[in-house]
Design a protein around this nucleic acid. Sequence first.
RNA 1: CGGGGUGUGGCGAAGUUUGGUAUCGCGCUUGGUUCGGGACCAAGAGGCCAUGGGUUCAAGUCCCGUCACUCCGACCA
Length: 480
Amino acid sequence: MANDKKMVEDITSMEEDFAKWYTDICKKAELVEYTSVKGCMVIRPYGYAIWENIQRILDGMFKATGHENVCMPMFIPESLLQKEKDHVEGFAPEVAWVTHGGSEKLEEKLCVRPTSETLFCEHYANIIHSHRDLPKLYNQWVSVVRWEKTTRPFLRSREFLWQEGHTIHATAEEAIIETEKMLGVYADFCEQYLAIPVIKGKKTESDKFAGAVSTYAIEALMHDGKALQAGTSHYFGDGFAKAFGIQYQSKENKLEYPHQTSWGMTTRLIGAIIMTHGDDNGLVLPPAVAPIQAVIIPVAQHKPGVLEKAAELKATLENAGIRVKVDDSNNSAGWKYSEYEMKGVPVRIEVGPRDIENGECVLVTRHNREKCVAKLDTLAETVAAKLQQVRDGIYNKALENRENRTYACTTLDEITAALTEKGDGFIKAMWCGSEECEDKVKEITGVGSRCMPLIQEEISDKCVCCGKKAEHLVYWGKAY
RNA sequence: CGGGGUGUGGCGAAGUUUGGUAUCGCGCUUGGUUCGGGACCAAGAGGCCAUGGGUUCAAGUCCCGUCACUCCGACCA
């Protein structure tokens, strides 16, 4: 059997139309369904289970770094949103407003949170008085609303699920350390659990979060060569504290402004998983977040002993902590193979009368379609090892794609040539630091600045655009 | 928000040019036979053709509006 044969005919191939391929997967793998409100989608059980796994792991990482969960309200009064000037300017164009309660017009209209900095600030102003009240390391898992003009499942919806961490510290140093620490947590999460390689970097001035002193991000490269911001971490300095009147008394008995951070990751990660690991047969899920890690397909299940053996194997694997499902539906074995490939289940176990007789089964890993025969009495160990191999395999494949699509350039012509000849990807190029050059690069080559990587290299001493002295290495790319 | 495309049972389409009883494939239901890469037979269920107006004896089809989805730009997690 040819390994590259496409078996699920109703998914558009990536090569043919990447955008269509993406939406096909979202629908066919039963991740989402549209609703009658533009940009608002139903996250179906299989998609939501992925999110629950992301939540569980990330939440554990937050707790391990000393954070507590809280829950702020969904509504922000207009006057509160307006307290920090840059912040309101950044978000005003995309907020949804509540103007009525029942049939009565509200005294002051309320915005549905696009992000909750203002609510946290109002709260901090109430509860922080002394240096002993600091730091506060808070996080919340909620949904937010941004009235986007064009929408796509997971990548850009009008309401989306996320976590937003909000911390407040006595000193700038502490807040900066927090900002960097959480960026590191995000990067580890993406690489270890989602098997998505990311670039850690700092955003340019023009690309900063509204109201931040500095914004950091992790950037991932999708299969089609477009960049996706997978998480952000912001350092606010004391700007919000000043705008909201948050002050504490220091040990020296002086009134001081505290320093803040915020950081977030969203259901967009599911989009990142799809576009990093998926292929023409459907989704490929990283084992850590796969709702089903191994699916058992009983072959000739009407024959005596087959279903019993499948149930027994399921119990064994579950005891070993593996998420497993037996599909004993009346569909043919071939149908089931395709179905779970489309749904991205990392490991498939085929077990039929012949195997049982031999004390074996057939194991197939989704990402490379490799088949092998495994002994039933050591199945749990074998599957656990396979799951690790899948994680490593898809990580390396994604890393290879990124490396093949990362082009170091020293002139604008080189950028254009690289993009035309080799296709979309990351451009590594030096930059003088002026917004003018940043805009010009985008205008002429079509790629925008993604981030200034924390690990800087000097591939030239001149700005790729104006030729003056270069200040930073920048990753550029087309973005989702 | 600018430019294009598409809306017909759950999904994918034909029918629209030239107005005249709503079609096909897949899926779904029931029963039976199958089962190692999307099985087969039989019998069924399901649609005021996105939506609001208009023209007409008659509108899925013609005219005007609206909405949604989608792609390409600008903006964004």
